Simulated assay, not measured.
Amino acid sequence: MSPSGFEARAAQQSPARRARKASMADVARLAGVSAQTVSRVSNGHSSVVESTREQVLEAMRQLGYRPNSAARALKYGEFRTIGVILFSLSSVGNSRTLEAIVDSAAQEGYAITLIPVAVPTQDGVLGAFTRLGELAVDAVIVIMEVHLLDAATVSLPVGVPVVVVDSNGGDRYTVVDTDQADGARRAVGHLLDLGHRTAWHVAGPEDSYAAEGRAVAWRAALEEAGVPVPPMARGDWTSGSGYRAGLALADEPDCTAVFAANDQMALGLLRAFHERGRVVPRDISVVGFDDLPDATSFIPPLTTVHQDFAEVGRRCVERVLRQVQHRRTEPGTTLVPTRLVVRGSTAPPRA
C-alpha cells in the first residue's frame, strides 16, 4: 500500500471508531489486509512479507491497537508467555543465562515473566509456581543452581511444562546445563600440559550445583593424571572471596597454578598475587571459568573456560516449548559443550 493510500484509509476512520478500543478488524481495514494476516503479525509468525508486516504494525500504532492476550489464550490455548523462576540474580552466570532465555524466547514470539525467589525452599518453589499460575504462563524455566532437587522433600509441581537449569534432576525433569565437568577437565588439563606439577582450586559455594560439578571434576582430573591433590579453597563467586583465597595461596611455595571456579574469583586471585609480588603467569598461572566479556581486559588477559550462555538459553526455550507442543514431559539432561580460551594468564612453570 502506498503512503497516500494508507493515510487516506486512516482519515476515513470515523470519530466513533477512533474513540472506542480498536479491534483486529479495524487494523485489517486500515492496513488493507485480512484479519488473519493481522493475527499472524500479532503472534510473530515469520510467514508475513516484511512490507506487509510494516503496514500492519503502522496500522496498530495509528489505532493504538494492542493484541488481547487473554482472548488469544482462550482461542488457541496459549498465552505466549514463559515463566522464569530464579533464586539469585547476583551471580554473573544466572544473569547471563536469564538474558539468553529472554532473547531466545523473543525470537520465538514469547514474553518472559520473572519470579525471583528469595529463599530456595520447597515453599518458595511452590509459591513461585502459584504466582506464575495466576499470571498465566504456558511453561516454566527454573534457574535452580542450588541443591534443591537433590533433597527427597523437594519437588516441582506436575502438570506444567518445566525445564530446569543447573541441576542433576534429569531423571525426573528436563534439564539443560553447561558441561561443568568437561570445562573443569579442560582447565586442569591445560595447566598440567604446561608442565605444572598440580593445579590448586578455588571452588564456588557449597550449595551450588555448578560449583560442586567443577570441584568434583577438578579432583578427578588430578587423580586420573596421578598427581597430588592439594587442599581446596572455598569462595562465594565474588572477586573478594577470590582475593582472600589468593592471599593464602600466595604463601604456598608449591602453588604454581590455580583453577578458579569462575572469572570473578580469578580476578580476585590476580589482585592478591600482584600485592604479594607473585607475577602472573611467570610465578603462578591462573585459569577462570565463564569467559566474561571483561576477561580480555584483566591484567594479564585471563585464560578461562568459555560457557555458551546463548546456547543454554536457546536450548531451554526449545525444550520447554517442545513440551508445550507435545503436551508431555521429557525427562533427560542436555549438556552444552565448553571450550578453553587461552590468553596471557597461563604459562609453563619457572625452571
Rank of each mutant, 00 (worst) to 15 (best):
P3T: 02
S4I: 10
G5W: 05
G5I: 01
F6Q: 01
A10R: 07
A11S: 06
S14Q: 09
A16M: 08
R17E: 05
R20V: 06
R20S: 07
S23A: 08
V27N: 04
R29L: 09
R29M: 07
L30F: 09
V33L: 11
S34I: 01
V38L: 07
H45C: 05
S46I: 11
S47M: 06
S47H: 10
R53D: 04
R53M: 04
Q55N: 13
M60E: 12
L63M: 13
N68P: 07
A71V: 01
A73M: 05
L74N: 00
R80G: 03
L86S: 12
L89N: 10
S90E: 15
S95T: 15
V102I: 14
S104T: 13
S104I: 12
A111Y: 11
I112R: 00
I115V: 15
V119M: 12
T121G: 04
G124E: 04
V125I: 15
L126V: 15
G127R: 04
L132P: 00
E134S: 09
L135E: 11
I141H: 02
M144S: 15
E145P: 06
L149K: 06
T153W: 09
G159P: 13
V160F: 03
V162A: 04
V164H: 01
V165Y: 08
D166Q: 13
D171W: 12
R172F: 01
V175H: 11
T178M: 13
Q180D: 13
A181K: 11
A181M: 12
A187H: 06
V188W: 05
L192I: 08
D193N: 14
G195V: 11
H196W: 10
R197G: 03
T198E: 08
H201N: 12
H201R: 11
V202Q: 01
A203W: 00
E206Y: 07
Y209H: 14
E212W: 06
R214Y: 00
A215Q: 13
A221V: 02
L222T: 03
E223H: 10
A225H: 13
G226W: 06
G226A: 08
P228E: 05
M232L: 12
M232C: 12
D236V: 04
W237R: 08
S239Y: 07
S239C: 02
Y243W: 06
Y243T: 10
Y243V: 06
R244I: 02
R244W: 00
A245C: 15
A245W: 00
P253R: 06
A257K: 03
V258K: 00
F259T: 00
F259G: 01
N262Y: 00
N262S: 03
Q264W: 02
L267V: 08
R271E: 09
R278A: 02
V279S: 14
V279M: 11
V280M: 10
I284R: 00
S285E: 02
V286D: 01
V287C: 10
F289C: 05
D291A: 09
D291H: 04
T296Q: 13
S297N: 06
I299T: 14
P300N: 07
Q307I: 11
Q307T: 07
A310I: 08
V312E: 07
R314H: 14
E318Y: 05
R319N: 12
R322F: 01
R328H: 11
R328C: 11
R328L: 13
T329V: 13
P331R: 08
G332K: 12
T333W: 14
T333V: 15
L335Q: 10
V336M: 04
G344F: 04
G344Q: 15
G344L: 09
S345F: 07
